Amino acid sequence: MITVNAMGDACPIPVIKTKKAIQKVTGAETIEVLVDNEIAVQNVTKMAQSSGGTVTSEKLAEKEFKVTIQLSGAVAKDTEAAPVTCIPDSRRNTVVVIAADHMGEGKEDLGKVLIKGFIFALTQLEELPKTILFYNGGAKITTEGSESLEDLKTLEAQGVEIMTCGTCLDYYGLKEKLQVGTVTNMYSIVETMNNADKILRP
Rank of each mutant, 00 (worst) to 15 (best):
S72F: 07
E38C: 14
T85L: 14
E64N: 11
L71Y: 03
S50P: 09
S72W: 04
T85Q: 13
I39V: 14
E58P: 01
A76D: 14
A76V: 09
D89N: 09
M47G: 07
K66M: 09
A74H: 08
G73M: 07
A82I: 08
E80P: 03
K59Y: 01
V55D: 00
A76F: 09
N93C: 12
R91S: 08
G53Q: 01
R92Q: 08
V95F: 03
N43H: 07
C86P: 02
D78E: 15
A81V: 05
K66Q: 07
Q49I: 15
A74D: 04
K59V: 02
T79G: 05
V84M: 06
V84I: 15
T79K: 10
I39C: 12
K63L: 12
I39Q: 13
S57M: 00
S90A: 15
T54S: 13
V41A: 13
K66T: 05
G52V: 12
I39W: 01
K77E: 09
T68E: 04
V84F: 06
E80S: 02
S57Y: 00
N93R: 11
D78C: 02
K59E: 05
N93D: 13
L71I: 04
S72V: 11
V55I: 08
E80L: 01
V67S: 03
L60I: 10
V44D: 06
N43S: 11
L71A: 03
A81K: 13
A76T: 12
T85W: 03
K63C: 10
Q49H: 10
V44S: 00
P88W: 06
T56S: 11
R92Y: 03
N93F: 12
T45S: 07
F65S: 05
C86N: 00
E80V: 08
V84N: 08
R91P: 06
N37K: 09
A82N: 09
K66V: 07
